[in-house]
Amino acid sequence: MSITKDTVKKISKLSRIASNEKFEENMIKDLNSILKFVEQLNEVKIENIEPLASTVDQELIKRDDKVNLMNGKKDILSNSPADNENFYVVPKVIE
């Protein structure tokens, strides 16, 4: 499988990263060399092997269902690029 300009456009869109001609040119080369490298895995026999998502071997601990206030709105909003009256401000979404 190889990555074309259209693929870069598509995955850039899915990743919410603005794309342009130059970016696509550069990425096609890099992404194809990475894909070629990872495709070595095609040699490996994986029939009947369970996927491994995590090496953690313990039961999840349940927390008590208690409200645990760590930060207030003011703290959290202090890092936002734009906010107003305890809300984040973004470009208009609804016409």
């Binding site: 990872v38 895995l41 490996v44 994986i46 092997i49 369970e50 996927p51 491994l52 998502a53 090496t55």
Partner: peptide, 10 residues
């Protein structure tokens, strides 16, 4: 596939 190979490595 990568997750399966990860199992083999482990």
């Amino acid at each position: 596939k990568a997750q399966k190979v990860r199992r083999l490595i482990k």
